[in-house]
């Protein structure tokens, strides 16, 4: 289950930022490594909410810097909101 979440996070990230999926590693930072502009960061949060059917605190979500941290944060949201 954890791997499935990570894969979906990476897939959404690569598609939305139009980057090579191979570059979307756990350690990759959205802004510095993947080139996310501030507007794209907002779209990414919205896309993750839609993809995982969760509501995120926007301040918390925009503070997430890397793909691995995003996976962890989304997993936390899913656990809190869906009990999984």
């Amino acid at each position: 289950m954890a791997d499935a979440i990570a894969e979906r996070v990476k897939s959404v990230t690569a598609e939305l930022l139009k980057v090579d999926p191979a570059k979307v590693k756990d350690s990759a930072r959205f802004v510095e490594d993947l080139g996310a502009a501030s507007i794209q960061s907002i779209e990414l949060v919205a896309a993750f909410e839609e993809e995982f059917n969760v509501e995120m605190d926007q301040d918390e979500a925009l503070n997430v810097k890397s793909v691995g941290d995003a996976v962890a944060y989304i997993r936390k949201c899913i656990a809190e909101q869906h009990g999984k």
Binding site: L16, E43, A46, A47, E50, E51
Partner: peptide, 15 residues
């Protein structure tokens, strides 16, 4: 409005 926009954005971005 935000939920509706999210769905539209996902379609537009090919997600």
């Amino acid at each position: 409005l935000i939920k509706k926009s999210r769905k539209e954005m996902m379609i537009q971005r090919g997600l």
